[in-house]
Design a protein around this nucleic acid. Structure first.
Lengths: 145, 145
DNA sequence: ATAGGGCTTCCACCTACTGGAAGGTCAAGA
DNA sequence: TCTTGACCTTCCAGTAGGTGGAAGCCCTAT
C-alpha cells in the first residue's frame, strides 16, 4: 500500500506518517522504486496511533501503548495505569485552566472597556504584590499540548 | 542592575530574560564590560511579562499588552478585547479537555485492570469505527500550552 | 595568584509536527 | 512517444517558548 492510500485510510497526513517512521513508530518496507510499502498491520498501527493521539496521549505514551497493543499477553493493568496517569494529568490541567478562567473572567467583568485608559486588567498585571496569585496554580508554558 | 538581580526580583530565570531580549521584549543597555544593565522600568516590564505569561497570554499577546502597558492614553477597550479573546480560548480548551476526561474516565472505569489481556481501553483504541468519536472534539496537539 | 561566582555568546534540544523546494516515478491521454 | 499531472522521495527550516550546556570573559575576596 502506498503512503497516500494509508494516509486516506488512517486519517493521518502523509507527512505525519513519514515522521512516525522517522521516530520508529512504524517500519514500512520499500519497493524497488523507493516508495514505502505499508502492510495492513501498519495501517492498523497508524489508525491506533491516530486514535491514541486524539485522546491526548503523548508520543511516548503511544509508544508504550503500541507495545502493549502488539502484546497479546499484556495485562489490562498496564494499559489502565497509563490511561489513569494521563487522565490525572488532563484533570489537573482542567483545574488549572478553570482557575485561570475565573481570574480572567473576573478581570474582564470588572473592566468597563471604553475609551478611558483606566483598566483593572492592566492594574492587575502591573501590581507587584502577589495577593492575586494566591490559590492560582501557575501556568506551565513549557508543557506542550 | 545586573541580570541576576533582575532575575531574582522579577522571578524570571536569567535565560528567559535573555530570550526576551532576543525577541525584542526588553532592550537593556550594556556596560563597558558587556554586561546587561537593566533600568527599573525594565524590571517592571519583566515582572509584567511574567504575570501576563502566568495568566496564559501568548508572547504575541504579551507584546500587544506591553505596548498598551506603556501607552498612558490607551483605552481599556483594547486591553479588554485581548483578555476576552484569550478567555474564550481558555474556555474552549477547558471544554475540549472535559470531553476528553469523560471519555478517558469511562474507559478507565470499564477496565478491570488485572492480569488478563482483555481490556476495554485497548479495544477502544483498536476499534476502527468512528462511533466513539462522536461529540468528542479533536485534541489539537499542535496547540502549545 | 587563584578560586568562585556571575556574566557573555552560541549551539543544540524539547514536542509533534508542518511547509516547501528540488527532483524521481508512474499511468493516462494526445 | 511525449507530455502532463499526480504521487512519491529526501532534506531543510520553522513553529512556541524556552532550557541545558560548553567555552570563555569579568570581578571580587582571600
Amino acid at each position: 500500500m502506498n503512503i497516500g492510500n494509508v494516509s486516506e485510510q488512517s486519517g493521518l497526513p502523509a507527512k505525519t506518517i513519514r515522521y512516525y517512521e522517522d521516530i520508529g513508530l512504524v517500519q514500512p518496507s520499500r519497493r524497488e522504486n523507493g516508495y514505502r510499502d505499508f502492510a495492513v498491520q501498519d495501517l492498523h498501527k497508524l489508525a491506533f496511533l491516530g486514535r491514541a493521539r486524539s485522546l491526548g496521549f503523548s508520543i511516548d505514551e503511544c509508544r508504550t501503548l503500541l507495545s502493549l497493543y502488539e502484546d497479546r499477553e499484556r495485562s489490562s493493568a498496564d494499559v489502565k495505569a497509563i490511561a489513569q496517569s494521563h487522565l490525572a494529568q488532563v484533570d489537573q490541567k482542567i483545574e488549572e485552566l478553570q482557575a485561570l478562567s475565573a481570574t480572567l473572567r473576573d478581570l474582564v467583568v470588572r473592566c468597563h472597556g471604553d475609551d478611558r485608559p483606566d483598566c483593572p486588567i492592566m492594574d492587575d498585571l502591573t501590581r507587584s504584590d502577589v495577593r492575586r496569585r494566591e490559590n492560582i496554580p501557575l501556568e506551565q508554558p513549557s508543557e506542550h499540548w
